[in-house]
């Protein structure tokens, strides 16, 4: 038998990404660009919510969108057609999430001198995107009513890293046994500081609150 040599490494596999993410955030701060990482499960209404929100804020701040998907460009095209703002599609090459390096590559293709806010629509998934810091200033997620109020119990990491939880499709509340009060309780169990914004992207109900929050966030980021 040959001698086996052991080389100690002792390194978290998230370490490099966490460092890249911190560097990206510092760079965004210098440039005065706010990056929002938007996550959710597939079909929760991310793209529709984005279109509604962007149409409310695009006259007040300069917005651009990066769509991340495993494949296809339907979301980027849909956003561009419905809002007229710059929108690019990123492909993750089979990966179930976006990391800080992929986010940076996406931002390199953005008109960074002409935007105040970039919204990153992450891959639809409640597990992997929560583990990889993208370098965003804030994390937001959308939970839709048909998914159920128990999701914060099942996907603890996602809810613990999100600063904002948007509860979408509130127009169908009468048809589901979704308990809003319990949902809020569960979200706050995971993150006591999470802000909860109930909306209906289809009718536009509640979208003003989301738009106002975003504008305030962007202004604070630029001015502090």
């Amino acid at each position: 038998m040959d001698d086996v040599k052991v080389i100690e490494i002792k390194k978290s596999i998230f370490e490099d990404n966490d460092r890249d993410a911190d560097e990206l955030r510092a760079e965004l701060k210098r440039k005065g660009v706010y990056l929002l990482n938007l996550m959710s499960s597939p079909g929760s209404g991310k793209t529709t919510t984005l279109i509604q929100t962007i149409n409310k804020i695009k006259g007040r701040i300069r917005v651009a969108v990066m769509e991340a998907d495993i494949d296809g460009d339907v979301d980027a095209v849909k956003i561009k057609d419905a809002t007229g703002i710059p929108s690019i599609q990123l492909h993750t090459g089979g990966m179930c999430h976006l990391d800080a390096e992929m986010t940076r590559q996406g931002l390199d293709n953005m008109p960074m001198d002409d935007v105040d806010l970039v919204i990153l629509e992450n891959v639809g998934n409640l597990v992997c995107p929560a583990e990889f810091d993208t370098g965003a200033v804030r994390n937001a997620m959308i939970l839709s009513v048909p998914e159920g109020h128990d999701k914060p119990l099942k996907y603890p990491l996602m809810f613990s890293i999100c600063d904002v939880v948007v509860i979408n499709k509130i127009d169908v509340l009468p048809y589901f046994d979704f308990d809003m009060k319990r949902c809020e309780e569960y979200v706050h169990m995971r993150n006591p500081h999470a802000k909860i914004i109930p909306i209906c992207a289809r009718t536009g109900e509640g979208v003003d609150a989301l738009a106002d929050w975003l504008i305030e966030e962007v202004n604070n980021w630029k001015n502090q």
């Binding site: 040599k5 490494i9 002792k10 390194k11 596999i13």
Partner: peptide, 10 residues
């Protein structure tokens, strides 16, 4: 909560 590479054998 660890996901870390402890060591490699070569």
């Amino acid at each position: 909560n660890e996901v870390e590479i402890k060591e490699i054998e070569v």
